[in-house]
Design a protein around this nucleic acid. Structure first.
Length: 206
DNA sequence: TGCCAGGCCCTCTTTAGGGCCTT
């Protein structure tokens, strides 16, 4: 059974080294290409949210003040994920927050990450933008609510993953585009991609 | 004072620079 956890964080900024912290996390658990379970929570990391971020996400200081402590939320999230391999849109960003917030909670973060930005750049080189919202529009992905909330974005990324796996099967003949395959594909250079897909699928690209 | 990430990718590259993507 193919099992993948798609994650999205909302945060106070982009830089952990500059003190940015998570304000909300959402995880969509996918089994065989279908969402089967979800985890979502605001979290209180004890830091102030810049006005720009509140404008972007709608998450206010009052909302996180009323939320459970970040360490408690991260412990729940880690239990929810277990050792399931993970996916995120621009995974480097979410992986850094996943590792940093779990470290603050005294927990390990052994899960491997695959990235839908890298995969999208490989598979859809002609797309004018690889932003999550633009790809969701391009592929008419299901969308429940305004972007820049963790669960809405995590679900969008999950449906983008479904689309990517679908195209790998239908366009490139990859029988089982599981997490290990996605990790191998995303590290493949653009130049080597046609050869990689030809070797790992039934049909060469284009 | 003034700064303000990190990693990937492309190219007019590789002794580098700029754009993209995440909040």
């Amino acid at each position: 059974m193919s099992r993948i956890a798609v994650i999205d964080f909302e945060t106070t900024g982009i830089s952990i080294s500059q003190g940015s912290r998570a304000t909300e996390v959402a995880i969509v658990l996918m089994e065989n290409g279908q969402p089967v379970d979800r985890y979502q929570s605001l979290m209180n990391a004890g830091v102030s949210i810049p006005p720009f971020i509140t404008q972007l996400t709608g998450i206010t200081n009052a909302m996180v003040a009323a939320a459970p402590p970040a360490t408690q939320v991260m412990a729940e999230a880690a239990r929810f994920v277990g050792d399931t391999p993970m996916v995120a849109h621009n995974a480097g960003f979410d992986r850094r927050f996943w590792q940093a917030e779990l470290a603050l909670a005294g927990l390990p973060a052994p899960q491997p990450f695959a990235c839908t930005v890298l995969l999208s750049r490989r598979l859809y080189p002609d797309a004018p933008s690889h932003k999550l919202g633009m790809l969701a529009e391009r592929f008419a992905l299901p969308r429940n609510g305004a972007a820049h909330r963790a669960l809405v974005d995590a679900e969008m990324a999950a449906w983008l993953l479904v689309r990517i796996q679908h195209d790998l099967r239908e366009r490139h003949g990859v029988a089982e585009p599981d997490h290990a395959f996605l990790c191998a594909l995303q590290t493949c250079t653009t130049k080597a991609l046609p050869r990689f897909l030809a070797a790992n699928g039934r049909r060469p690209v284009h």
